[in-house]
Design a protein around this nucleic acid. Structure first.
Lengths: 139, 139
DNA sequence: TCCTACGATAGACATTGTCTAAGTCAAGTG
DNA sequence: CACTTGACTTAGACAATGTCTATCGTAGGA
C-alpha cells in the first residue's frame, strides 16, 4: 500500500502513529493538500494529532525528498507526494484545482549560459495557469 | 522617469501622493520587493502612508496588468514592475536573490493537448532555482 | 522490562494579508 | 477660485498560515 511509508521506514525514520497517519493521508496521485487540509484529514483518523506535528512531519518529508512543496497561489503551500517522477503543475485560476502534467522538452536546456548569471541551477519549476473545463462551463 | 506612473495616469487613475510613491518605489529593472518592503521604502518618502494603502495599490496595479505578482518562495508575494516584457525568474535558494531571465523556446508549446485535460491555458510561469555565484563562494 | 533520546503536544507568537468604519482629498463643476 | 462628491487613505482589528518553546510521552534498543 503506502510506498511513501515504506521509503520513510527504510531511511531509519522512527515510526509513530502520527507519522503513519500523515503519510497515509498524503498517499496517492494528484494529491496536493495544504498543511491544514492534511491536518484536518489526519484528525479524523487520530483525533489528538496536533498541528505542529503535521507541520514538522511534512517538513521532514520535504527535507528527505519524499514529498515536494508546491506554492501555486501564494497562499498556503501544498504538499505533493509524487516526488519521484519529475512533473509540472497545471492550475485552475478560478477553483484552484491542480493537475500533474508532463511537458515535452527540457526547460533547463532553454536557458542559455548568458542568461544564467553564474548561478548553479538545480531545478526548474513550471506552472501552467488557466481555467479548468468545469469552471469554464459553469462560468 | 517613471513609465509606470505615466501608464497608470493614462488609465484614468486618480493620482495621489501615496500612489505616486508606491509607483516610484517599484520603478526599475530587477525589482522584486515584497509588499512590506515596498511599504518600508514608501514610508521614508511619505511617513504617514499606511500598510493597507500599499496593499491596495499593489493589488490595483496587478489588476491593471502593470505589475506582476510573483510567488517564488511560498512566503510573501513579490511585485515585479517589468510586466510588459515576458520573462521568467531565476532564484537563489540560499539568499533569495531574484533575476529576470529570458529562456529560449515556448514552454506553452511543450505541453501536448493530451496533457491539458481540457484546461484553457492562459500563461506559464517558469522558476529556475539554484545558488547564486555570491552564495556559492561564501558557502 | 527499563531507559533514553527522539517525537508529540498545546498554545503563544510571528508574518503576511484582508476588512471596516470613519476621515481626507483630487479633480470636475460652476 | 470655492464647492462638492465619490474615490482614496487611515488605523487597527481580524484572519490565515506558519514557527517556536517548554513539557510530556513513547518507540525501540539494551
Amino acid at each position: 500500500m503506502s510506498d511513501l511509508l515504506e521509503r520513510l521506514r527504510g531511511r531509519g525514520w522512527r515510526m509513530t502513529a502520527q507519522r503513519r497517519v500523515v503519510a497515509e493521508v498524503l498517499d496517492g496521485d494528484h494529491v496536493h493538500l495544504t498543511a491544514d487540509e492534511v491536518h484536518a484529514r489526519a484528525v479524523t483518523r487520530l483525533p489528538e494529532i496536533s498541528r505542529a506535528t503535521v507541520y514538522n512531519t511534512l517538513g521532514e518529508m520535504v527535507t528527505l525528498g519524499e514529498v515536494i512543496e508546491v506554492a501555486t497561489d501564494g497562499r498556503a503551500k501544498r504538499y505533493d507526494p509524487n516526488a519521484h517522477r519529475p512533473h509540472q503543475h497545471l492550475v485552475c485560476g478560478r477553483c484552484g484545482a491542480i493537475r500533474d502534467v508532463h511537458p515535452a522538452g527540457d526547460p533547463l536546456a532553454d536557458l542559455p549560459d548568458t542568461e544564467r548569471f553564474g548561478f548553479t541551477i538545480s531545478n526548474v519549476e513550471v506552472t501552467y495557469r488557466g481555467i479548468c473545463p468545469n469552471c469554464a462551463t459553469t462560468a
